[in-house]
Amino acid sequence: MSGVRLLRRAEPPQRVDLSALRPEALAGLAEGAIARLPLGTARAPLAVGDLFRVQAGDEADLVIEGGSPRFDQLGAGMTTGILLIEGDAGCCLGRGMRGGRITLRGGAGAFAASGLTGGVIEVTGDAGDFLGGAAVGERTGMAGGVVVVRGGSGARAADRMRRGLMVIEGAAGPQLASHMIAGTVVCARPGPHPGTLMRRGTLLLGEAALLPTFVPAGLAADSAFLRLLARALRPLSAAAARLADSAAARFVGDMATLGKGEILLAGSIPAG
């Protein structure tokens, strides 16, 4: 038998918290039990059955057909299994996720992949502000796992990121990887001031206007690190792997703070 399927009936009347819809939590549950799970965040009660037609399944493999910018916390806290969403997501997609895989065929709201520590999140559309960033009151953003955004992202993606890999294939908003603590971010078209106040970590970028607090530092020719990184990026994103293959200049910073971060700039990117 296959996994659980949820087919969206209509646009929800309020914002909903879908963190209960983790694939591993729904596997094996009866359709009625799934339909009764509460989702509402407003005074009017709302359950899964009010929003979705439910088809039960026994595998940790959940498909949600039809999204909405009001669908918050999709896949939040997920530890295993596969979550596929055909449509948009609200805020906090995959927040605090520890394992498994989320594929969003649409756009995500703010704070997607925030608090991520493991697993893979792929967004085919655009992501909102603070992708993989630290939520209010948190000291660190994503601390592991992999995020691949095929579109662009809002402001301050990878804010306070501590570990893991983020790939943004489209254009990123301003201050990509602000306050970055460690980890790796790859983006061909970053907005203004990437790496603002970054302490450590690696930004691999296409053409970018850097802050004056980033200083040129020699790029190791034929770097084994970049070769390994390119190899790891290839199955995730061909565009990102091409950036790693073509890294031509290295800057370190942000000298306004610790200054042990690095920005690798691609030279002429080979076509392909």
Binding site: R163, G164, L165, A182, T184, R200, T202, F225, L228, L229, A232, K260, E262
Partner: peptide
């Protein structure tokens, strides 16, 4: 102190 740790795959 200038060493860099990277976790890849």
């Amino acid at each position: 102190g200038w060493q860099i740790a990277k976790r890849i795959d």
